[in-house]
Amino acid sequence: MPITVLIEFIKDMFQHWFHDWYEEAVKVTTPLNPWVAKLLSKRFNDAHHFVVKPINRGEFKVKDGKMDGLVNLSKKTCSCCEFQTDLLSCSHAIAAISKCNCEAIEFCADYYKTTVLVEGYSRSIEPVGHPSEWDIPPHVKQIIVLPPPWQGQVGRLRRKRIPSTG
């Protein structure tokens, strides 16, 4: 079976996936990806129990019972490192955001938003077409591709199985 059949199968598979994922993304009505909205909701519930003390306009000290977190909303950082690693508000940051009367969606990276999700799957994967229709330059047609050189393993072939010791 030639490699082109495999490539065609993979292309068809990606076309099918992209179409299905696009259809799912268009159905989403929330501004954030559904799993992100669920995660932020859980973090928001955890943040209700935290004690938030403002340091200045953009920095807050957040006590959660286990550790004291230092949140900087202007730099989007937290001492737990979740905020800057995921580019998504951690529970400490959500507590600080609530203290500022802001929305958590303002502090999320763009790639968590539904518009970016839809845009990512909106492009189509074009069919390649039949090889007779391809426009291949002459200098490419002259290139001969051979398989890599093969060397057999050193030593005599094992003809009998090795009996177990037990």
Results as ranks from 00 to 15, higher is better:
97 I>P: 00
88 L>M: 15
164 S>M: 08
150 W>T: 09
53 K>Y: 00
76 K>C: 07
30 T>W: 12
49 H>I: 09
39 L>V: 02
160 K>I: 07
125 I>G: 02
131 P>Q: 09
94 I>W: 06
164 S>F: 13
42 K>G: 05
44 F>V: 01
54 P>V: 06
143 I>F: 08
38 K>P: 01
34 P>W: 14
62 V>D: 01
57 R>V: 14
54 P>D: 07
131 P>M: 12
89 S>A: 11
116 V>S: 08
17 W>N: 09
26 V>F: 12
52 V>H: 06
54 P>L: 08
35 W>T: 06
91 S>P: 03
92 H>C: 01
88 L>C: 05
57 R>P: 05
64 D>L: 09
25 A>C: 04
150 W>C: 09
157 L>K: 13
146 L>I: 11
49 H>A: 15
149 P>N: 07
143 I>V: 11
42 K>C: 13
126 E>D: 05
55 I>W: 07
77 T>P: 00
111 Y>P: 04
52 V>C: 09
48 H>F: 09
107 F>H: 02
59 E>T: 10
73 L>S: 04
106 E>F: 15
162 I>Y: 13
91 S>Y: 07
107 F>T: 01
72 N>C: 02
97 I>L: 09
72 N>Q: 07
115 T>S: 12
30 T>F: 14
129 G>W: 08
132 S>M: 10
142 Q>G: 02
155 G>K: 09
71 V>T: 01
37 A>P: 03
151 Q>R: 11
105 I>F: 08
20 D>W: 10
29 T>W: 03
140 V>Y: 11
70 L>V: 04
